[in-house]
Design a binder for these strands. Structure first.
Lengths: 345, 345
DNA sequence: CTGAAAGCGCTTACAG
DNA sequence: CTGAAAGCGCTTACAG
């Protein structure tokens, strides 16, 4: 009594930590606990009178079904695990948003781990497995093929978002058409009259970077133009600054640079303009990939290849939501779109 | 048999969906199921011989404790719910990363919902409650005071990150010293000799924006300088572009603009430079708040107030991890630091 | 230190 | 449609 008085100034309602259970609701409503469960279960056979009785008692007690307990029985946690590398890339918050929104609509929740770009996230995946997630999405992260097997054995689908691997194992991948993107960018630069080309890769073992490069190189080859000079920017701003300096310091410096993502292209624009006095578009063509919001800002005005992250998210979630219903394609590729702005002429 | 053969080309190991339980491990190891549990429980009384026996059997079966079942009994899900508004602000991925990393270290997982900036997220909070989260973090989102009460009653702490409210109810807030930040920015601009000031607010009912504005206005008042012109930029790029155009079109246009965050300040730099031909720093002083990575890029080179998100994340997680141990401050304020760059003279 | 047993809060056959 | 009962996969007193 004196305790509750001394705390009264802090808050009107004391924190009890007591949470109503289905049993409490059943007792108050004068029905069985099964009935309470049915009132909260989609499509359970229950009379509307009974449901109303239960719902009234439930709201009186502030009852909320414990989904952890439900998950134990149904063996569906409705949780999707997601690991995100490269937090620095503005594309990923957008991807996260799309995925989160669409997953919510389908009744799924997102359990998130952040990591370093391209990091091996076995530790986090193990944790997902302990939480009995219904699916796993990898964003710019990597897992061992041993663990991929474990996931497969456990019946947990793994989706590589914006990436793929040679040996998919039990996994599947969702990407935009990176090869075609690189190709269209190459053709665009050729038509614009650029002569000496460079490609700024993400990192060596990124399928995304590789395929963009492949398409680009092929388009140049078709025009009998020498292969592009090649540098590596790590998919980061800092890495791209280094790589751009290297490129622009060459005696025979390139007059067009295709960066494997917008983040690196923005850095390259800054280096060109403020360190070398070169005006993007005029003195040097700079192209990115992704079409992040920043790409359209006047400071960058980046020619780029727009990634259809909306559609990619839809495909990803549809795959997860229709688990087992239909055998999906292992590798889903969604077309993107070339966006020409003033960072190229 | 014929089925497994027809699938053989797809993967070496068939997806069985069968997951080992503590019972399976117990049987294989020839011990009780309790022993298995103890082998996986921190500080449980178990001989090392027994533990080894269990662990061997467990690894043979690929056993992973079901933390959902554990959560049911311990009443600790080790899940923290987080709602994030304003996905567009580059500060938030960083915040997410810090929180995620530190929470992981303390054995907590992040259940994430994204939302619109300043959105009311009662729906998502209800979902957190059904998942029996151990704590809730709100990032640029808002919940009804009724639900805040519900959380309090259920013993679930709610932390407002980078925000506060007048009536905290059962909640608590973690912010940087916004008032002081605004004040230091005001003094810096005065010293630099700027004369006509403007403030670009986030939105009306944001404590963050209000306190930054308050400090700013106070510092001008102390110098007997008229109150700043005031516009609203919604904390977004698009909103800031509109607001900046409005400001710079005035007959008596301001020569110094303090934007309530860096995101808006970057937009203001672009509008000033590319639409009005004004060079930031020289023709017009532009200041932000946060010190996002972009702020240091040459294109923006933003004078700003660095938010100590590292420390803020630490305080947040410490609070969550020490649940109940000690009564924390309801409102935690961490000092930041003025960073002067060339967007002001 | 170890095991048998109860129980966390639910869902779901199984009878009625 | 409804209830009693079994059970999801664990943890944790309780004896020994």
């Amino acid at each position: 009594m004196s305790r509750s008085q001394s705390k009264a100034s802090d808050s009107a309602v004391a924190s009890t930590g007591v949470i109503a259970t289905a049993h409490d609701v059943a007792r108050l409503a004068g029905v069985s606990q099964s009935a309470v469960s049915r009132a909260f279960t989609q499509g359970a056979s229950i009379s509307s009178k009974m449901r109303r009785k239960v719902l009234n008692a439930a709201s009186e007690l502030g009852y909320r079904p414990n989904v952890l307990a439900r998950a134990l029985i149904t063996r569906r946690s409705k949780i999707v695990g997601l690991t995100m590398g490269n937090v620095e890339n503005p594309l990923f918050p957008l991807v996260l948003d799309k995925l989160s929104t669409r997953l919510s609509e389908q009744g799924f929740r997102l359990l998130l781990f952040t990591a370093k770009i391209n990091a091996q996230v076995d530790k986090q995946i193990e944790e997902f497995l302990r939480y009995r997630v219904d699916a796993i999405i990898l964003l710019s992260t990597v897992m061992s093929s041993w663990l991929a097997d474990e996931c497969h054995k456990a019946g947990i689908p793994v989706i590589l978002f914006n990436r793929t691997v040679k040996r998919l194992g039990g996994m599947c991948g969702v990407t935009s058409d990176n090869d075609r993107g690189g190709r269209e960018i190459g053709r665009h630069l050729l038509e614009a009259g650029y002569k000496r080309f460079a490609f700024m890769a993400g990192y060596e073992d990124s399928s995304t970077s590789q395929m963009r490069e492949h398409g680009f190189t092929e388009s140049l080859k078709e025009a009998s133009v020498p292969a592009p000079i090649r540098v590596i920017g790590d998919f980061t701003h800092a890495g791209a600054v280094r790589a751009a300096r290297e490129l622009l310091s060459l005696k025979k410096r390139p007059d067009a640079i295709f960066c494997a993502n917008d983040q690196m292209a923005c850095a390259t624009v800054d280096v060109a303009r403020y360190e070398f006095g070169l005006e993007p578009g005029k003195d040097v063509g700079i192209v990115g990939f992704d079409d992040i919001p920043m790409a359209s800002w006047p400071s960058f005005s980046l020619t780029t290849y727009s990634q259809p992250i909306d559609e990619m998210a839809v495909k990803t979630v549809d795959f997860i939501a229709h688990l087992g219903k239909k055998a999906p394609h292992r590798q889903m590729v969604v077309p993107g779109k070339l966006i020409v702005r003033s960072s190229t002429r």
